[in-house]
Simulated assay, not measured.
Amino acid sequence: MGQHVRAGELEIWTEEVGRGPDVLLIGGLGDTVESWQFQLDGLADRYHLIAFDNRGAGRTAMPDGPVSVEVMADDAADVLRATGVASAHVAGFSGGSIIAQELALRHGELVRSLVLQSTWPVMDAYLRSWARFVHWLVEAAPSERAFLENFFLDIYTARAHNNGTVEKFIEEVLAFPHKQSTEDLRRFLDAFIDHDTTDRLPQIAAPTLVLAGGLDPTARPQLCRAVADLIPNAVFEVLEQESHQPFQEVPEEWNSRVDAFWRNVGPGS
């Protein structure tokens, strides 16, 4: 069962499962702990996993004041401290991977290793235009279902759309009782459009695995590779037949690859 923990000035909704080396999971745009369900179920026999709802998503409120990646990275650090974790393997996807980068830069002592799925150092013109399209789509779509059907075109593979996986995800989102407001989604998205870690990524000392989806039209492999090239000794891999969120589409493959990386890094002190 999840619970709110006091993290800085926020009550942040968290889910903790399993025993073993500590892992922090950071979600992307509007995503809640449920986005990591395949990892919470599939890795709990080997790891102590903590997932949480970012500010303005799910069961964590969006406070007044500026929203920035730096603030959300501080939230993640506060979650670790509130749960008594001195250092964790950190995994983030999409916007959550950018928060994870900033967490490693601002609170490096808390980060044992990094897994960055579908990431970038700075949005290029294409990705920035896509983000602005989502900003418009969330308001213009005639229904929540219509928004999800169109947004998910760029998130999941054609395979997942054709085999019913995406429809299942849509039904789960529609039934979820803790809806994110349009304004909160836009504020979250805006925090990433001009965020740039290019000059600072070489400062990251944590062992890092960068994963790209070969079919991802948004955080394309060349953007992910740019991150791997900037972080010393980072490992870069492309899941050729996957899109933006392979940890949901092929969770066993993703979990196995990440588990191997974490085992190679070791649990730390």
Rank of each mutant, 00 (worst) to 15 (best):
A160I: 07
S118W: 03
E144Y: 05
R187H: 01
D154H: 10
A158Q: 15
R128K: 15
A86N: 10
L114P: 03
R145C: 06
S143I: 13
S143H: 10
E139Q: 07
F169R: 08
R112G: 00
S113P: 08
E149T: 13
G84T: 07
V115L: 03
N162E: 15
A82R: 11
V166T: 06
E172H: 02
S87R: 15
H89M: 09
L189E: 06
E144I: 05
A141D: 03
H135L: 08
F188V: 00
A88I: 05
S97M: 08
A140I: 01
F151L: 11
R186D: 01
Y156P: 14
R187T: 00
S143C: 13
G96M: 11
L185M: 07
S118R: 04
L148M: 09
L148S: 06
A100C: 09
V166S: 10
E109K: 01
S97Y: 07
A82D: 06
G95K: 14
V166Q: 06
A140Q: 12
F152N: 14
L189Y: 01
N163T: 09
T182Q: 09
R132L: 15
E172P: 00
E109W: 00
E109N: 05
G108W: 00
V90F: 06
F176V: 02
T165S: 12
A141G: 05
V111A: 03
A91V: 12
F151K: 04
R186G: 00
V115K: 03
S113D: 05
W130K: 12
F133C: 09
P121N: 07
K168W: 14
F152H: 12
A146R: 09
E149C: 07
L114I: 00
T165G: 11
H135S: 06
T157D: 04
A82V: 07
R186H: 00
Y126E: 08
A158P: 13
W130S: 08
S143R: 13
T182R: 14
H178G: 00
A158K: 15
G164V: 01
G84Q: 11
